[in-house]
């Protein structure tokens, strides 16, 4: 564990909590893509099946359980409890266009053809693109609530911090995982536009609105 990975995990945790609190406090999931949340639940489910097979540390197991539980809690809030507020008209991204390529890619480029490894690889590829339905929704409506933009910033910052962690681990432990690194860089690049607008607008107290 190093400071970059710890900060990354904290950002990830903050993002999830911010999203849950936003929905709970406002009693509404307006502006949130349920499809992205389905993809994230799938990411955690396929990546953390190793909870049953390998033990890394108490920290590792507890975080995995939190990510799994919170992702299903988020889905419950969106699709059951506050379903009436779900903005399905704007959540029109076709997730099969992400799922199918991720399945194919994980069969083509993987470290090992064991079921757990294939699920892990799939989860890494899917995580890289899971935010696209949410970004598509923001681009469709042209705006995001300030709290939603905080959520997106924390979620994007998490993988950016992981990249720094991988650079650090490469030099200190000679550790490198090509699949995670390439997917993580792509994932972070997808947030680049958003980061720019977040820093130039939201942090200066303005609303998150896309340029016309």
């Amino acid at each position: 564990m190093n400071i970059f990975r710890l900060l990354g995990d904290i950002c990830h945790l903050v993002a999830i909590i911010v999203l849950l609190l936003k929905i709970w406090k406002t009693r509404s999931c307006a502006g949130i893509s349920g499809k992205s949340q389905i993809l994230f639940a799938l990411v955690y489910t396929t990546r953390y099946v190793d909870l049953f097979f390998t033990y890394v540390s108490l920290y590792n197991s507890v975080m995995k359980v939190i990510f799994l539980a919170s992702s299903y809690a988020t889905l419950y809030l969106i699709y059951v409890k506050f379903k009436a507020t779900y903005d399905f008209n704007h959540d029109t991204f076709r997730i099969e266009f992400l799922l199918i390529p991720c399945v194919i890619l994980s069969l083509l480029i993987t470290h090992d053809y064991s079921p757990v490894e294939l699920l892990w690889t799939f989860s890494i590829y899917l995580e890289a693109v899971a935010i696209l339905p949410q970004l598509f929704m923001v681009s469709k409506t042209g705006e995001a609530e300030t709290i939603t933009s905080h959520y997106l910033f924390a979620l994007g910052a998490y993988r950016a911090l992981y990249i720094v962690n991988w650079i650090y681990r490469y030099y200190t432990e000679s550790f490198i995982d090509g699949i995670a690194v390439v997917a993580g860089i792509i994932q972070t690049i997808l947030y680049a536009d958003f980061f720019y607008l977040y820093i130039t607008k939201v942090l200066k107290g303005k609303d998150f609105k896309l340029p016309a």
């Binding site: 390998t54 590792n60 975080m63 470290h111 550790f175 090509g178």
Partner: peptide
């Protein structure tokens, strides 16, 4: 041959 990376990250 690449060693399978340890899965200690989240």
């Amino acid at each position: 041959h690449e060693n399978k990376a340890p899965k200690d990250e989240l």
